[in-house]
């Protein structure tokens, strides 16, 4: 807890950079002057002139500053794909159920949404081509100067899926324990035994409070009759 987190791009002095624990990717050097969105309206930032630039100006997370964020074209493709799917579903799968009480029927709204999605995808692509970039979300524990740590994210997804697959078979107490322990491991905590104790305690407490105490749906699973 003694480590300072002052960042050079926020006007602080630079402490020796802590090594990126558990990651194989070395931290990318800072880039001052975060690229802001192209079409920033006036209204949203009424008093920024009065606000010292030390807060709320996060740096873009990856790549050196001048290179445009090309991954954004992926978002455009995703939006267009969703739009196409919605139109396809509306024109082929949804029945044409129109009657006098409902002259519109179930089809027009999805078709409209699909078309709008295609339009927005196109405008988005133009915006990206003109140098527009979204601003990654900042937060208390978010350090946007580091690249995305995919190993942690994938391990967390793994722990999450283990719980989803096992919850009905083994019950919440066991699957929840695995979820918490696995997530703590993924996030870099290596106190295996202590974490296991915390995970079991948390699962048991939530099971008794919510399932038994408040009647919330949580499965007992294989421990049925024991708990």
């Amino acid at each position: 807890m003694s480590g300072m987190t002052t960042r050079p791009d926020r006007g602080g002095e630079q402490p020796p950079r802590p090594p990126a624990v558990e990651t194989s990717v070395p931290p990318i050097p800072e880039q001052p002057g975060a690229q802001r969105t192209a079409d920033l309206p006036e209204v949203t930032r009424p008093a920024t002139a009065d606000v010292p630039p030390t807060v709320g100006e996060p740096a873009v997370d990856d790549g050196p500053a001048p290179r445009p964020d090309r991954a954004q074209y992926g978002v455009c493709a995703f939006l267009a794909l969703v739009g196409g799917l919605v139109i396809l579903d509306a024109t082929t799968r949804i029945g044409h159920a129109v009657n006098s009480a409902d002259p519109i029927g179930p089809r027009p709204v999805p078709i409209l949404l699909g078309v709008l999605l295609l339009i927005v995808a196109a405008i988005y692509a133009v915006d990206v081509a003109c140098g527009g970039a979204g601003e990654p979300e900042a937060g208390e524990d978010v350090d946007l100067t580091t690249p995305i740590d995919w190993r942690t994210v994938l391990l967390l997804i793994g722990a999450f899926l283990v719980n989803a697959v096992l919850i009905d078979r083994l019950g919440w107490v066991i699957s929840g324990t695995l979820l918490f322990w696995g997530s703590a491991f993924a996030l870099g905590n290596r106190h295996y035994v202590r974490n296991l104790l915390i995970a079991v305690a948390l699962s048991l407490i939530t099971f008794y409070t919510f399932a038994i105490g408040l009647g919330v749906n949580l499965p007992a699973g294989v421990l049925q009759g024991i708990l």
Partner: peptide, 14 residues
């Protein structure tokens, strides 16, 4: 949670 995990400050803020 996933987003923060991807960019977790390795030293928690003071």
């Amino acid at each position: 949670a996933l987003w923060i995990a991807a960019h977790l400050r390795r030293r928690a803020a003071e």
